[in-house]
Nucleic acid binder design. Structure first.
Lengths: 205, 205
DNA sequence: GGATGACGTATCGAATCGATGTAACGAACA
DNA sequence: TGTTCGTTACATCGATTCGATACGTCATCC
């Protein structure tokens, strides 16, 4: 869900499209970035739904200090052209997006809805978990835990029933390891979440 | 790449669409199955490219032995209708697909092309690895290893540079664990692949 | 002066998803 | 006896997403 990604990022600060893509790329550790082909339509969609609002912004170019030279004149001319053609084809101002109140509501929905199965959506929710209240956060982790336990059972049943070739077996082994890893990781998160000790000292480390 | 999945499965035996989806679902351990909305168009595409061939097949219904009863007559009538309307809306014969020679060539392409980044495609390649000759198989594993090493470096650089909140840190930790896991797993596979000992005894275990 | 690459918005066609429709048939069960 | 449910099976729809491409500015390096 690209909406979750966009709204989550915009909660922290206003951003334009290009920057959104960059941030998301590093947030999700390189892989699983989003493409412009989905980003810009999604932004338009969100704007139409009044979940975000766009502000056209001139490139913060310092209007090239007047030197009297030809180059200066030319630069000023270009700036005027830029200024006037905004509505036409893009005028090269960035469009900076900010989240609206409705958008914040939508984000809460996306963060807390009980969709267990989508791994990428879960990752995004964790990435933005600091915007969640502690109880929702705990609930998120525990529901995820249930989901993973279900998967482990299914995997165990499959492994028991079928006798397969070497490579399929290796894949199942890999899946089992990942699952065990994720469960241990989740348990650690849940533990931390349950311990009532200082949440606020974290920043000062 | 759905083509890879379909061609890989059809290499082993002829199948119809519904069965294809089921097999793929268990092959990929529940998650990451494919939808009908992509399966049937993909089959049509592959048939148009002559990579697979479809054979319409009546349901192996035993033509309802004549009882003379009304029910029997009705049943026979239905069977006749079924028989005649095959070309119309589907007549409820399954379409069984088999792979063609061209399809086998395409499969080799898909299995050996140096696309490193797509995790799902890699998983599929491992699932069908037994159809690969040993040297291609080893190459596949080693290229994947290089890819994962690259990701680990990128992740390390990110972790070193940025100071983040608790949850982003946890995500990076999880990624690092997965990466380490996968690398160890790959190394095991590569080791086995390199050991020249009996490949054929495997089946007899 | 000319190439290269970062920044930035945007669209196009194709691939894919998720939901839904249609239909046959066996089993459950009341 | 009929009716309702789950499974098998093919197919299409609209929406979402991807990957490639286009267009344009600006700075840097050679």
């Amino acid at each position: 869900m690209i909406d979750l990604a966009i709204l989550g990022l915009l909660t922290e600060q206003d951003l334009h499209g290009y920057e959104l893509k960059k941030r998301l790329g590093e947030l999700l550790s390189g892989r699983a970035s989003i493409s412009f082909g989905s980003l810009y339509p999604a932004l338009a969609r969100l704007e139409a739904q009044d979940h975000v609002r766009a502000v056209e912004q001139r490139t913060a170019v310092p209007i090239t200090p007047m030197t009297g030279s030809l180059a200066g004149e030319l630069s000023a001319f270009k700036a005027r052209v830029r200024e006037s053609s905004i509505a036409k084809v893009g005028g090269r101002g960035k469009k900076v997006y900010s989240i609206t109140e409705a958008g914040r509501g939508r984000l809460v929905e996306l963060m807390t809805n009980p969709d267990l199965s989508d791994d990428r959506a879960f990752t995004l929710r964790v990435a933005f978990a600091r915007h969640l209240d502690p109880s929702s956060r705990l609930e998120l982790f525990e529901r995820r835990r249930t989901e993973l336990l279900g998967r482990r059972d299914a995997l165990g049943r499959r492994a028991a029933s079928r006798r397969q070739d070497r490579y399929l077996g290796a894949l199942q082994e890999r899946d089992a390891d990942h699952l065990a890893n994720d469960l241990a990781w989740l348990d650690r998160l849940i533990d931390i979440e349950r311990t009532p000790t200082m949440q606020s000292t974290e920043e000062s480390s």
